[in-house]
Amino acid sequence: MGDAIVITSGKGGVGKTTTTANLGTALALLEKKVCLIDTDIGLRNLDVVMGLENRIIYDIVDVVQKRCKLKQALIKDKRFDCLYLLPAAQTSDKSEITPEGMIEIIAELKQEYDYILIDCPAGIEQGYKNAVAGADKAIVVVTPEKSSVRDADRIIGLLEKEDVEPPHLIVNRIRNHMVKNGDMLDVDEIIQILSIELLGIVADDDEVIKASNHGEPVAFQPNTRASLAYRNIARRILGESVPLMSLDDDKGMFTKVKKFFGIRS
C-alpha cells in the first residue's frame, strides 16, 4: 500500500506544481514507484513542467467519468520507468470530478505505487476539496511572504478538519540576502506562526525556472542547490533524517577565512 500525499498552499504561484514535479523526480531517483496527479482541472501545468504535454491522450476527467480505464490515462515519464503522471483536463472545470471519484482513483493507485503525489490547485473551493479527499498526508508549500504565510495558515486550519496526518511544511524560494537584511520573513518566524513540522527549505534558484521551461524538473540535475534541497526532502519523506542545508552562499576561501577570524562580511 502506498502513501497519498497532497501538496497544497492556499495561495497561487508559490510553487506547488514545481514542488510536486521535483519531489516526484527525486523519489523516482530513489527508486520508488511514484504517480503524480494533477488536480488543477482547467489550468493544468504539471504535464508542462514534466515535459509530457504532448503525450496526453486521456485525462483524470475521462477516468472519473469512466470514458477510459485508469491505466490508459497514466503517462510514463521520459526519464524514469517508475514515474507516472495522471494529467488534468484542460477543457473542463473543477466541478467535473468529485471527492468520491478522487478517493476511488487514489485507492486504485495505492495498490501499485509507493507514493502518490497530488498537485492541488490554488484556493479552498471544489478543486482543493477534490485534491485533499483521497490524501493520507499533506505538504504545505509556503514562500517567505506574509500573504503566503496567511493563506498557508488558513489551509492548515482546513486540513486539520480533514482525515489527514498533521501537515508538513516546505519553505520555498528563500532568498538569503533578503532574509539577512530583514526584508524577508525568515524560516524560524514562519514556523513560529504556523507551528507545524518543517520538511525542508528550498532556496530561490534561477535553475528551477530554467529547468521547468525545458520540461525537466530541476531535481534531475545532480548538483544545483535547489535539486539537492528537493532530494533531501525526498529522503526525509522516506524517513531518513537529513540535516537542513545551510543557506549561506559559498563565497570561496576568503569569506571562510574572514568568518574564521570573526570578521563580518
Binding site: R150, D151, D153, R154, I156, G157, L158, E160, I193, L194
Partner: peptide, 25 residues
C-alpha cells in the same frame, strides 16, 4: 489549540486559550 487564519472560537464566560491566535484568527 491554535486558532488559525479564518477560524473563530467563541465561548460563554471566560476563555483561557492555551495556544496561539494567528493573524486572521
Amino acid at each position: 489549540r491554535i486558532v488559525r487564519s479564518g477560524q473563530v472560537v467563541e465561548v460563554n464566560g471566560d476563555l483561557l486559550l492555551i495556544g496561539d491566535v494567528n493573524p486572521g484568527g
